[in-house]
């Protein structure tokens, strides 16, 4: 069974560091119609930032390549996000996901990106092929809030 897709977007951008911020803002703008709570929005932005930063610092380590960011709003206030690169790939995904594991300690990486993505989403799926690239898919459902919040009179 698949949930209906209510809205979707795809953006492609080069793996430049300044696009970390752009990716966060693109996703937060895209999901704004769901009126996420402050903490939910912040967590989703953090998860996106982790995945995009990994493409920039690991996948395309000494080069610039394309990152594809896809987002969908699914029925039931669910946000689907997919971040894809065609970079170096990951040979051992389980090891990569282990908290504190990093291949770039000298660059002050903490090895916590996947741990953060995992704890800030309901589903995290990583598919990777060495030399071909990596796709990270995350799904996060948002809390349903009181509709009355949005219906308040604007009168003075």
């Amino acid at each position: 069974m698949r949930a209906n897709i209510l809205n979707e977007m795809t953006v492609r951008f080069p793996s430049l560091s300044e696009n970390e911020r752009f990716a966060r803002l693109a996703v937060s703008g895209f999901i704004s119609s769901l009126d996420p709570a402050v903490d939910e929005l912040s967590e989703i932005k953090t998860a996106v930032s982790e995945a995009v930063t990994n493409c920039i610092v690991h996948a395309y380590r000494d080069t610039v390549g394309e990152i594809v960011l896809q987002a969908k709003l699914l029925e039931g206030k669910r946000v689907y996000i997919r971040i894809k690169d065609k970079g170096c790939g990951i040979s051992d995904i389980e090891q990569a996901k282990t908290p504190l594991f990093t291949t770039a300690p000298e660059e002050e990486r903490a090895g916590l990106g996947f741990a953060i993505m995992e704890s800030f989403t309901d589903r995290l799926k990583v598919v990777s092929r060495p030399g071909k690239g990596t796709t990270v898919t995350m799904v996060r459902s948002l809390k349903t809030r009181k509709a009355s919040d949005g219906d308040k009179n604007k009168g003075d």
Binding site: T46, S49, E50, T53, E108, R109, A110, G113, I116
Partner: peptide
Amino acid sequence: GFMDSSGIGLIIG
């Protein structure tokens, strides 16, 4: 207002 794991790296460093 926002920090990801790069901020953790910054703190640890």
